[in-house]
């Protein structure tokens, strides 16, 4: 082998090692996050975390039962608001393509997806907090649904487009009209994919914090209706993490673990569904 060839292979191998190192570094961050959070979270997690209200600042003990419930309520409401809009919008983009509107909507949905979530929080604040004159779970849910909608639109469209045209034509050839064909043949064929998109979107909004800071705010107690300020896990993690109290830090770790576990399990479930669909 000539010196030049040796040199070329050396470059080849050095670059392989370098880019591999880049990858390893990124991946190791994930393991560091998981490891550190599981370690600190598990030692902080107890039954009270799931069943009790937070204690006053500086006082040890208590839990985040209200925040867990609040998160579930707001994510649930956001899903109820956002999924139908996103799903039907996605159906339009995929099945009624043509003309100037679909590309514009598509591009807008991508842009909406890129708007910082805190800005969407301001929009929800203006829509609900200002007229209602109170922070509320409703406002938080609307803020979260604004994040969810573009995600669901684009994933629904993408998976509907993946349905082979022969299926559509087959249904139309049997005399079904377009709406029936879409509803009974195309959507069912894409349902796993659409569901995956929804789960990923829900996992994303479950961890969103910034848009809740001035829409649902926070609450040390149970919110008795969605018209009241409502606690959520992400906001609790934020307020507890920046507080000076050790026991609040402990609670933040526990909340972080619960939140991350939910998000990662949802992600893995979604990707498992998709990979089963693909094979």
């Amino acid at each position: 082998m000539t010196l030049r060839t040796r040199w070329r292979y050396l470059v080849n191998n050095v670059m392989l090692a370098l880019t591999g190192f880049c990858t390893l570094l990124t991946i190791s961050i994930l393991f560091f996050i998981l490891g550190y959070l599981v370690w600190n979270g598990f030692t902080s997690l107890d039954l009270a975390f799931f069943t009790e209200l937070p204690k006053s600042p500086g006082e040890a003990g208590g839990g985040m039962a209200n925040a867990i419930l609040g998160s579930f309520m707001m994510v649930g409401l956001a899903t109820v608001i956002g999924v139908p809009i996103g799903f039907l919008g996605g159906v339009y983009l995929a099945e009624y393509d043509g003309g100037w509107l679909p590309p514009v909507v598509r591009y807008t949905a991508d842009l909406l997806n890129g708007i910082p979530s805190i800005v969407l929080g301001i929009v929800a604040w203006n829509l609900l907090v200002v007229p209602m004159k109170t922070f509320s779970a409703w406002a938080g849910s609307v803020a979260l649904s604004l994040i969810l909608i573009p995600i669901v639109v684009r994933s629904t469209e993408q998976f509907l487009r993946a349905v082979p045209n022969s299926l559509r034509e087959g249904a139309l050839a049997l005399g079904a009209n377009k709406a029936t064909a879409t509803l009974t043949v195309v959507v069912p064929a894409a349902r796993r994919g659409i569901l995956t998109g929804i789960i990923l979107g829900v996992a994303r909004i479950a961890g969103e914090t910034a848009p809740l800071l001035f829409t649902s705010l926070n609450n040390q107690f149970w919110a008795t209706s969605p018209n009241q300020p409502t606690a959520s896990l992400p906001v609790m993690i934020f307020t507890h993490a920046i507080s000076p109290y050790d026991d609040w830090h402990r609670q933040a770790w526990a909340a972080g673990l619960v939140l991350l576990a939910f998000v990662l399990i949802a992600n893995m479930t979604a990707r498992f569904v998709v990979s089963r669909n693909a094979s």
């Binding site: 994930l30 961890g207 969103e208 914090t209 993690i237 972080g256 991350l260």
Partner: peptide, 8 residues
């Protein structure tokens, strides 16, 4: 890694 929430 992309799915880990910002607050975490």
């Amino acid at each position: 890694l992309a799915a880990v929430p910002s607050v975490i």
